[in-house]
Computed example of a mutant assay.
Amino acid sequence: MLIAQLTDLHIGFDLDNPDELNLHRVAAAIDYVKGLSVKPDRLFLTGDLTDHGDRGSYEKLKALIDGCAFPVHLCTGNHDDRTAMKQVFPDLPIEDGFVQYVIDEPEVRIIVLDTLDPGHHGGAFCHRRAGWLKARLGEIPASRPVLIVLHHPPIETGIPWMTSHPTEPWVVMLDKAIGDRPNVLMISGHIHRSITTQWHGRMLAVAPSTAPQVALEMAPIDPERPDERPMIVAEQPGVALHLWTGEAFVTHHAQVGAPDVLARYDRNLQPLVRSLAEEHDAVEPGAAAA
């Protein structure tokens, strides 16, 4: 199973511009996913789908994904509006007022969470959402792997203006709702950068955005003293690919666009490929390394 992820699309940032940069970047990222040699089984768009939560921007997104040959699943971010999303995407699952739902694959349960708190930049996770998550986790054996999909990563990132504190109430609430369940992987967005970490023993992969990225600057920031540091940079749109191997998820982050090709699989590289294949075939399945 291959799961693709795009995040932080921010369609409508330049609302009155018919040639909007963010829309072009989203279109390029979706074309990238559609053109993969191994087609994804699902595509998750993990929040901040629009910049202003307006219906027109959601309609532009709908036009972009209507041509996808695989299911596309939506998640809310702090720039989104649940009502406008539901108007444009009437099949959007809403549970108890939140965009949260379950997708069961043969080996993995996927749980999409809603961390939106309207008017607030950071994440939110209340008692109602926590109760729903506990119930969904309680429906399946503890040994069954779970992929949790959400917008806000509940972590300190090292980028001082784009981070969550470990004692924030929503972070504590989410941690308690998951509890000590093993085999939990989390994927998110929000930071506009690629980050991989552990959160209380759970693997967490933050995908890069399709909108321009946040500059990787870890120095402390003073809200009272602008220091001319870079904040947003024009790196290429990003995409995440999560491959289920039968034992675990392997996550790849890539940039959209045509890179310079320095080597191709031709006769010159055939001996290398052949020798690697022979090494791989020589290892019996399940054999321990020496």
Rank of each mutant, 00 (worst) to 15 (best):
M1W: 07
A4T: 08
A4S: 12
A4N: 08
D8P: 06
L9G: 04
H10C: 07
D14L: 06
D16C: 05
D16E: 15
N17F: 05
P18I: 02
P18K: 02
E20M: 01
L21R: 08
N22M: 02
A28N: 04
A29T: 09
D31I: 07
D31R: 11
D31E: 13
D31Q: 10
D31N: 11
Y32W: 11
P40N: 09
D41I: 06
L43G: 07
D51W: 13
H52N: 07
H52G: 02
G53R: 01
D54E: 15
E59M: 14
L61A: 04
K62W: 14
A63F: 07
L64W: 06
D66F: 01
A69C: 08
P71D: 11
V72C: 10
H73K: 04
H73Q: 11
T76D: 08
T76Y: 03
G77H: 08
N78S: 12
D80F: 07
D81A: 08
Q87W: 00
P90N: 09
G97N: 04
F98Q: 05
V99L: 12
V102R: 14
E105R: 01
E105W: 04
E107R: 01
V112T: 15
L113D: 03
D114Y: 03
P118Y: 03
H120Y: 14
C126F: 10
H127F: 13
G131K: 12
K134W: 03
A135M: 05
I140C: 06
I140M: 09
P141H: 10
P141A: 13
R144F: 08
P145W: 08
V149A: 02
T157M: 11
G158Y: 12
G158P: 11
G158S: 06
P160R: 00
W161R: 00
S164L: 00
H165Q: 09
E168R: 00
W170D: 08
V172Q: 10
A177R: 01
V184I: 15
G189K: 07
H192A: 12
S194I: 07
T196M: 10
H200V: 01
A207P: 05
A207G: 09
A207D: 13
S209H: 06
S209C: 13
Q213V: 00
V214W: 01
L216P: 00
E217R: 08
E217M: 04
E217S: 02
A219V: 10
P223I: 14
D227P: 02
I232R: 08
V233R: 10
P237L: 10
G238I: 03
A240S: 15
A240N: 03
H242V: 04
L243V: 11
G246C: 10
A248N: 11
F249S: 08
H252I: 09
H253F: 15
G257T: 12
V261A: 13
L262H: 14
L262A: 10
R264L: 12
L269P: 00
V273E: 07
S275Y: 05
E279Y: 01
H280E: 05
A282F: 00
E284D: 14
P285S: 09
A290W: 11
